[in-house]
Design a protein around this nucleic acid. Structure first.
Length: 435
RNA sequence: GGGCUCGUAGUGAAGAGGCAUAUCACGCCUCCCUGUCACGGAGGAGAUCGCCGGUUCGAAUCCGGUCGGGCCCGCCA
């Protein structure tokens, strides 16, 4: 029976155990050989003295799948204090090709070397530092789910093959669908609003596809989005508070439970408060222009430089590196957003560590007003991509709001990486479709 | 789509007209090594310097083109 690395302590001084895993490292010292064997729970050090056993590993490269039988020993000199002695080696899957990248020391994440990193991704992901990134990401989505379940949200799955663009205007991937033209969903926007009429509170964690020709450290063509939508809200603030509480809860829990892993990845210290500062975009333009001398007061949206600046400003002045930028100008709002009486919309961007990770609007739930805004945006309400959507409103949708939330960007910023792609297993961008 | 940049063994880097038979580290191969943990020591193999053309007595190095990356802007998650 197989014993995992994490279970070894229960077997110290007892019957011999058998571990299975990948050869992670060899150190031959002559009469004494150390090997590291990696399984899903960790890396076990094995001590081999028998020359015949060492000889079984001759020519076997890192990645060789092994079974090792031996005695678990309490040994202070071993990493983790436990190691395997009197080892009997069985090579289960021999590997004779040397790996294209080394997996026992950190891989280069320099921008110039990202192409090599992703070309060799299949093997590079076995590097323990890469593994840590995706362990953090897994914990992130787990804790988001738990928070939302606790608040009565129902997890849904909506179609990714759709008849029309969800938001009109943005670039979409078009494809042939049995002779008809379909697109890959760039957002579950319409479906999640429809589902408010069913469950009140819904969320989805799923890919969204963006065909924009962007080549920056924060864009990819396939993103993982957390989409949240909640009905029967009092006002826009209720949505902001829900997203704020979720982010606060997830971040503090992450730093609490995964502190060692974050430290090993050299993640920045967390500077956060339960209530995130809220600045209007107009305020940010004014503050930024005053402090830097660069006039942005005529900008409609925040510039990337302002996004970085306001997060740093808020970190210094408010002790919180997560901040809401409220009051999106009406000229930038989508047809399904709710407008304010002035020239702004009920929408806010959540910024964290210098980048926009979420947009948090209240929706226009009044049928007539919505149709009016659709027409103004040049959308035909009778189009099959939209007529079903409108049906949900005709038959009663309460005041509601939600968010689109970039999981990749959030994971990237939590860990302190420099490029969104580093937080994605197999990233897709304008020139990468494999692996 | 616009602008700016970078391509040197499997990996990461140095070399910026002739000192070059292209240097170093990791990895790989051979040998030595009984407490390593980025083990150590000795030796070895591995690169038509992305590709094509030009300038020059001479090009990894300068110029032009081309292919492939990266970064920034626009747009957004």
């Amino acid at each position: 029976m197989r014993t995992l690395h994490k279970e070894l302590k229960e077997h110290i001084g007892k019957e011999p155990v058998s571990i299975q895993g990948w050869l992670h490292k060899k150190r031959l010292l002559g009469g004494l050989t150390f090997i590291n064997v990696r399984d899903r729970s960790g890396v076990t050090q094995v001590v081999i003295k028998d020359k015949d056993e060492v000889e079984k590993l001759r020519g076997m490269q890192i990645g060789t799948v092994l079974e090792v039988q031996g005695n678990a020993i309490d040994e202070p000199r071993a990493p983790g204090g436990i190691e395997l002695h009197d080892a009997k080696i069985t090579v289960m899957v021999p590997v004779t090709d040397e790996p294209p990248v080394e997996i026992d020391k950190p891989l280069s994440h320099k921008p110039d070397n990202l192409d090599t990193l992703f070309d060799n991704r299949v093997i590079g992901l076995r590097n323990l530092q890469e593994t840590s990134i995706f362990k953090i990401r897994s914990e992130l989505t787990r804790s988001i789910r738990e928070f939302l379940y606790q608040h009565d949200f129902v997890e849904i799955n909506t179609p990714k093959l759709v008849a029309g663009a969800a938001e009109g205007g943005a670039e979409v991937f078009k494809l042939d669908y049995f002779g008809k033209e379909a697109t890959l969903a760039q957002s579950p926007q319409l479906y999640k609003q429809i589902m408010v009429g069913v469950f009140e509170r819904v969320f989805e964690i799923a890919p969204a596809f963006r065909a924009e020709l962007s080549a920056t450290t924060r864009h990819v063509s396939e993103v993982t989005m957390l989409d949240i939508e909640m009905g029967f809200i009092d006002d826009h603030n209720e949505v902001l508070n829900m997203v704020q509480d979720m982010v606060y809860s997830v971040l503090t829990r992450m730093y609490d439970e995964q502190g060692d892993t974050l430290k090993s990845l050299r993640a920045p210290e967390l500077v956060i408060k339960p209530e995130f500062p809220r600045y209007s975009m107009a305020e940010i333009h004014q503050l930024f222009s005053k402090e830097t001398g660069k006039d942005t007061t005529k900008e409609v949206d925040l510039t990337p430089e302002e996004e970085k600046w306001i997060c740093e400003y808020s970190k210094q002045h408010d002790g919180c590196e997560a901040v809401f930028a409220t009051g999106l100008p009406k000229s930038k709002m989508k047809f399904y957003h709710m407008a304010n009486d002035d020239d702004t919309a009920k929408s806010a961007d959540l910024l964290f560590r210098g980048v926009e990770i979420s947009t948090v609007p209240q929706r226009e739930h009044r049928y007539d007003k919505l149709v009016e805004q659709m027409k103004a945006a040049g959308i035909d309400p009778a189009h099959p991509g939209f007529s079903h959507y409108l049906l949900a409103f005709k038959h009663g949708l309460p005041k509601h709001g939600g968010c689109g939330f970039g999981i990749d960007r959030f994971a990237e910023k939590i860990i302190g990486l420099g490029n969104i792609k580093e937080a994605i297993l197999f990233p897709r961008d304008i020139n990468r479709l494999a692996p």
